[in-house]
């Protein structure tokens, strides 16, 4: 948090080194978020690119109210939502997952991980975008409901209900998959 503030302070004074450090620190995390939301790595890379260029344009006037990760995640989520609106109805294939769970070990674990790597994005993709967005921001980006509500311009009740419905739907889908 303090490091964020120092980096932002330097960035606001035109330090390109500070900007580079911010980019290096958050790029993969933000790409993962964009990939989770859009399911297309090349579009996700474009989103991350656009977010950082827009962020660079705020040099000298950028005011950080929360965390840098939260701010950039919100930017990615907003940009991804715009893109999703444009291509609603299109079904984009995934070509991106490089690894997922790093806690497993040994061949059986890896097998499960590989299955999960393909399974989970498909699972999330079966949710309405609004529910997926809230779930990904909360569980992947570790943003609080209040933070998400502020970022998306929604009430906290709406965010919580979207999350609840999303989790319920995932549970139903997963139960059906297990009983098959």
């Amino acid at each position: 948090m303090i490091e964020d503030r120092i980096l932002v302070w330097k960035f606001n004074r035109g330090s390109k080194d500070a900007f580079r450090r911010i980019y290096e620190e958050h790029k993969n995390d933000l790409l993962g978020l964009a990939v989770s939301l859009l399911r297309d790595k090349s579009i996700a890379e474009d989103v991350v690119h656009d977010v950082f260029v827009s962020f660079a344009e705020t040099v000298g006037t950028f005011n950080l109210s929360g965390t840098l990760k939260g701010y950039l995640s919100t930017c990615v989520a907003n940009r991804a939502r715009d893109i999703n609106r444009l291509k609603t109805g299109q079904n984009v294939e995934t070509d991106f997952i490089e690894a997922t769970d790093t806690t497993s070990d040994g061949p059986p674990g890896n097998l499960i991980v590989c299955e999960r790597a393909n399974f989970l994005p498909d699972l999330l993709a079966r949710l309405p975008y609004e529910q997926r967005e809230v779930i990904v921001l909360h569980l992947h980006q570790e943003m609080r409901f209040r933070e998400i509500a502020g970022a998306l311009g929604l009430s906290i009740n709406t965010v919580q209900s979207r999350y609840r419905y999303g989790i319920k739907k995932l549970r139903t889908i997963l139960d059906n998959e297990v009983t098959k």
Binding site: K27, V35, S36, I97, E98, T100, L120, L124
Partner: peptide
């Protein structure tokens, strides 16, 4: 399910 989704976070690299 929450743990499962959390663990399924994609580790993409630019």
């Amino acid at each position: 399910i929450e743990k499962l989704v959390r663990q399924g976070k994609p580790r993409s690299t630019t």
